[in-house]
Design a protein around this nucleic acid. Sequence first.
RNA 1: GGUGUCGUGGUCGAGCGGUAAGGCGCAGCUCUGCAAAAGCUGUUACACUGGUUCAAUUCCAGUCGGCACCUCCA
Length: 500
Amino acid sequence: MAELKIFNSLTRQKEIFTPLTPGYVGMYVCGPTVYSDVHLGNCRTFISFDIIYRYLKYLGYKVRYVRNITDAGHLEGDRDEGDDKFSKKARLEQLEPMEIVQRYTLGFHKVMELFNTLPPTIEPTATGHISEQIEMVKHILANGYAYVVDGTVYFDVEKYNKEKPYGILTNRKLEDLLEGTRALGGQDEKRGRLDFALWIKAKPEHLMQWPSPWGMGFPGWHIECSAMSSKYLGKVFDIHGGGMDLAATHHTNEIAQSQACYHVSPARYWMHTNMLTVNGARMSKSAGNGFLPGELFTGNHKLLERAYLPMTVRFFMLQTHYRSTLDFSNEALQAAEKGLKRLWEAYEALEKTDLSSIVDNEDTIDEALDNNCRELMAGFDEAMNDDFNTARVLANMFELVPVINSIKGGQIALGSIRKGTLELLQKQFRVYLLDIFGLKDERGNEGGVLDGVIDLLIQIRREARSRKDFATSDKIRNELLRQGIALKDEKNGSITWSFN
RNA sequence: GGUGUCGUGGUCGAGCGGUAAGGCGCAGCUCUGCAAAAGCUGUUACACUGGUUCAAUUCCAGUCGGCACCUCCA
């Protein structure tokens, strides 16, 4: 087995992946903040890590995949002085904060299910780990990297930077970071401009607050990930992932917190997924250019020409490497939809091909063809081992599609490819499409209820054609097409159908 | 301003020292009662300028342009 290489944001290069404990992988991915619906950009990150999770499992690793739910502490404004997002939304909608959390958590899970992502093995919440966060803040204070001002605990970035490079993850010097930050206001209680809150004193009207050694308050945004990752994966673990936008602040602070608390850097491999863009600009909540998954599935959005299926979107994302930006457009989605259909129909034809009766005969084997198939398939793992290059796997699959279709159509005789090669072809398509890429049939023919009905119409059409009654046969074909069902006259005389 | 990243054909997108995957689109042909599907064939691409090298799209430097982060966002 070739070695898996991962691009490590920390070192800005591809590195051979060696887990801390042979055979086991600990992976932490920053999850959603559940105060509103997830938009498609969020989904891209979670779909990317779903593929990574699935591939690690395919490689035989036992993976503990932790993805948190942020349900407290995330502030509206910058500078640790705005409203808590949950409190604000709760006031706005006259609900308990936990009702907000519950609603959007369920919505998030529903969307993840539609995209066919596997659930993480642990999905901890910030509110469920208040004491762990308080403990960690206490340690950081005891170690001298934080200070308390009137019930709020701040992390002392400049002190920390004297010992460890604060901006290591994004390759920035402290001086440069300070330049880019606005000056402290006169009323600011922080010592340094870059200092961030570990624990925040709650105003009396604040809806979510907990007792702490520093009074009633709530945790800062960054400490939850440090507390929960160390609790479930250890002080040092293998992979930490998230969107690229989190690297500069959130992940930078996580590293600082872990160093200040445990004197270790938490993750050995940092992985960052790139942004989803619309017309070249980043899709984001604040910019208001986000698509909600629901809008996509219904087509109910001013920029969408029509609805698209979740698997179309998933496939669309697979065609681009996770570290590249991906631009969202109707054209791109429609191209993805057609590509997926072609690939999926080839897969189905391959599944239906009966290989049991094949006996290899060296005289009929087309060595070049057989070799080519094997090389293309070997390229699957090779591409995935090269920092999860799903796009290259798909390219190889598409090169195999004509081979599969030609076997089906009779242009390639079964005997020209070795039985073992064909068996591997079936296995690789099944494993990659279903298990690793997580694609599934969405044609809406659950239980095959339509099969019998369509078969009957196919029979009638076949009889009509045999009497040269083309009016009837065309009527059946055209009317079915209007219902979204396409009949296909195959080379071998059979007639198959598919949703159009 | 700082830190990165990207600039590949009609379009979307891989690759990244030895003259360039694949999807979609388009054109022609085969098959077909006609179509569709499928198959085959084709489809004038590596921003610009220097440098290193036997050899650069790929490495280095610079120029131009895009984007992102440095402030809430995956």
